[in-house]
């Protein structure tokens, strides 16, 4: 460890001030990115969490060093971690389309707490480095997003007359390495003629292939119409 920092790891007034500042600083750093993206938990929330956790762990240390009461240094701060997780669950939201939002924010708050605990105990090396790494990862996520190519998924509607046609369509799609999921079929009658309306999610490699795939499906015998409803992803 960096022993020149040792004088500031205790519970004297100077150490307390330095530790609290460290906690506030790193909490702010972690919260900066969240605030920039207008997430519900901004800079202040993260600073509060880190400071609260630092106070809790400092108190644990104080009880050990300055009083006679037998105690475990880590118990108070360990409870902080559990408690923050409860808070974190409260910020996670499930939307109407069954998407989970807020997981990263919850993890960030939880991590701020852990960093605050480290700061409160005087573990400056760990707290600063972890805070820097977390901040770096949040900032660099934008850079990495450019590297990630998503395969788009389209919701496509196919109108057929024969009951065997859909099976033929599936075979054609498989030959072109298109991923199929969520097949939904509705049977209707128009002017006494039977029609099968199928809705299926197709995962197609790139935009240029999309039109080729659609014309391939349309050319299957028995297919009346191919319609792309929307792009899901």
């Amino acid at each position: 460890m960096l022993h020149f920092l040792d004088p500031f790891r205790g519970v004297d007034t100077l150490s307390v001030i330095i530790k609290l500042f460290t906690a506030v600083l790193i909490g702010a750093a972690v919260g900066l990115e969240r605030s920039h993206k207008n997430k519900p938990a901004g800079v202040r929330t993260h600073m509060l969490v880190a400071t609260g956790a630092a106070i809790a762990s400092m108190t644990g240390l104080f009880i050990q060093l300055a009083t006679d009461m037998p105690s475990d240094i880590t118990r108070i701060s360990a409870a902080v971690i559990s408690g923050l997780s409860f808070l974190g669950v409260g910020t996670i939201v499930v939307t109407k389309s069954y998407n989970v939002k807020g997981l990263t924010t919850a993890a960030g708050l939880w991590a701020s707490g852990i960093v605050g605990i480290a700061a409160g105990l005087g573990f400056y090396e760990g707290a600063f480095l972890a805070g820097a790494l977390i901040l770096f990862s949040e900032l660099s996520a934008g850079f990495f997003r450019g590297l990630i190519t998503h395969e788009p998924v389209y919701n496509v509607e196919v109108l057929t007359r024969d009951k065997d046609t859909m099976a033929k369509v599936m075979r054609v799609l498989k030959d072109h390495h298109v991923s199929i999921s969520n097949l939904k079929m509705i049977f209707t009658e128009v002017d006494g003629e039977p029609y099968y309306l199928s809705q299926v999610h197709l995962k197609i490699r790139s935009d240029s292939d999309k039109e080729k795939i659609y014309s391939q499906i349309a050319s299957v015998e028995g297919v009346e119409q191919v319609l792309e409803i929307e792009q899901i992803k």
Binding site: T104, A107, W110, A111, S137, A141
Partner: peptide, 13 residues
């Protein structure tokens, strides 16, 4: 929903 940032934050913490 849990991507690069969530996994990094959790592992480092």
């Amino acid at each position: 929903p849990a991507g690069l940032r969530t996994y990094t934050i959790c592992c480092v913490a």
